[in-house]
């Protein structure tokens, strides 16, 4: 299944999803694709002033352009998500998109999709970390693997 992860650029979550036979919907792939797009030269991540306008699909013009620009990157991930893992209150080094308002909106939209969803708190000690990985593993095992999907 296509599993949305939050934080959307968490390498650890992305790796876990992959290990259990699913496709992680991670932001790195979207940004990577954008950077490799030929003919565009809008450093550092090739987001152009047109992208925040695409974000109007999710938020009105009164919402800051940085939020809408980020939302335009999330568009395909939100559309494709068949399941999701949301880590609550992660530390910055676990993965981060920089903007709290974008995070709130993305989490809300994922919850509103009514897809299989696991929400777990970011672990604060080793015991919690084991429990954290166990919960995510069990959740991912419960999902239908990508290759079995007809």
């Amino acid at each position: 299944m296509k599993v949305f992860i939050y934080p959307t650029n968490s390498l650890i979550l992305s790796d876990l999803v992959e290990r259990f036979g699913h496709e992680p919907l991670a932001l790195m792939a979207v940004i990577g694709k954008k950077i490799r797009t030929k003919g565009l030269d809008s450093p550092p991540i090739n987001v152009t002033p047109e992208d925040p306008k695409l974000g109007l699909k999710y938020a009105a013009v009164e919402v800051p352009s940085g939020v809408r620009g980020r939302m335009s990157l999330f568009d395909s991930l939100l559309t494709d998500a068949e399941a999701a893992v949301i880590v609550r209150d992660p530390v910055i080094s676990f993965g981060c998109m920089g903007c709290a308002r974008t995070n709130e909106l993305v989490n809300f939209l994922i919850r509103a999709k009514k897809i299989p969803l696991l929400e777990v708190d970011y672990p604060e000690n080793e015991d919690n970390a084991k429990e954290f990985v166990y919960k995510i593993s069990e959740f991912l095992k419960s999902l239908k693997p990508a290759e079995d999907k007809k």
């Binding site: 030269d41 809008s42 450093p43 550092p44 991540i45 987001v47 152009t48 002033p49 047109e50 992208d51 925040p52 800051p64 352009s65 940085g66 939020v67 620009g69 980020r70 990157l73 920089g98 903007c99």
Partner: peptide, 14 residues
């Protein structure tokens, strides 16, 4: 700054 690169204006700043 916050949001300049996601607003697509970093090139304008530069």
């Amino acid at each position: 700054s916050c949001g300049a690169e996601y607003s697509g204006i970093q090139g304008e700043i530069d």
